[in-house]
């Protein structure tokens, strides 16, 4: 049986890792290489590494940095931030990324998701969908949540799937960093609308939140950051608890 993944997210800015609230109010939380090494020792299921300034600053991905991180990462690594071309993806895969996360450029660069999927396969394209609640309902935001669009996340996720995305990384901007729980309704709406796995992101503060988004939100995986940066909880503790509830969790020599 396919196991439910618990995925730490690392947000990179300038020279280190940060974590904010609502895609804002960033705090420094450590060094990237050290964090990757710790998560590797802890045998986490998968890592998400996002360079949150690259797109806004018009930078390409930092291949040297990813090369260094990947050398210590014997688990799957998804890399995002600044990816705007097939060439960017090719170079990231060459230095050790297993999947790429494409968000703003999926909206702004016509055909990018389709071209990357054609060339490297749908399985390496994680389409990142950042969502804000508006009076008109859920709307997709781009550029690290700063630029609103009129895209409905359900329709947009369906389109991304049709273009060749292999997974959706679905983040609630309002819940991000609050540790008040995922937007379970949003996750269920998107997850039920697509046939590809949806990774829930934004809001995890405890195991109950993760359980809710998996059970009621129909997420295939749960990504989280603050809960690992600011509480004592570890990925393994969350997994042990969920395993007790009957969720399929990866066997580990650390149990």
């Amino acid at each position: 049986m396919l196991k439910t993944r618990i995925m730490p997210t690392l947000l990179y800015r300038g020279s280190g890792l940060v974590k904010g609230v609502g895609f804002d109010a960033w705090r420094t939380v450590g060094a990237a290489l050290q964090a990757v090494r710790v998560y590797n020792l802890r045998q986490v299921d998968e890592l998400v590494f996002l360079d949150i300034d690259a797109t806004r600053e018009g930078r390409a991905p930092d291949y040297g940095l990813i090369d260094d991180l990947a050398d210590d990462c014997f688990m799957p690594l998804t890399v995002g931030g600044g990816i705007r071309s097939v060439e960017h993806v090719k170079r990231l895969l060459e230095v050790g990324a297993d999947k790429v996360s494409i968000g703003s450029a999926a909206i702004e660069v016509e055909g990018l998701v389709a071209n990357v999927a054609d060339r490297f396969g749908a399985q390496c394209v994680v389409a990142s969908v950042d969502v804000r609640s508006t009076p008109e309902g859920w709307r997709v935001a781009r550029r690290s949540g700063t630029c609103p669009t009129d895209l409905c996340p359900i329709e947009w996720s369906r389109r991304l799937e049709a273009e060749g995305a292999g997974e959706i990384l679905l983040t609630s901007v309002e819940r991000d960093g609050t540790m008040q729980g995922y937007d379970v309704e949003l996750c269920r709406a998107v997850s039920d609308a697509v046939g590809i796995p949806v990774i829930a992101s934004g809001g995890a503060g405890c195991t109950d939140h993760v359980r809710a988004v998996l059970r009621e939100g129909n997420a295939s995986a749960a990504a989280m950051a603050s809960v690992f940066h600011f509480t004592e909880l570890t990925p393994l503790e969350i997994k042990a608890e969920l395993r007790g509830d009957g969720f399929p969790m990866r066997s580990s020599s650390l149990w």
């Binding site: 396919l2 196991k3 046939g195 990866r250």
Partner: peptide, 13 residues
């Protein structure tokens, strides 16, 4: 087959 989510992504036995 499309009876499960495809791609098949993650840890499996």
């Amino acid at each position: 087959p499309a009876d499960e989510r495809v791609p098949h992504v993650g840890w499996n036995e």
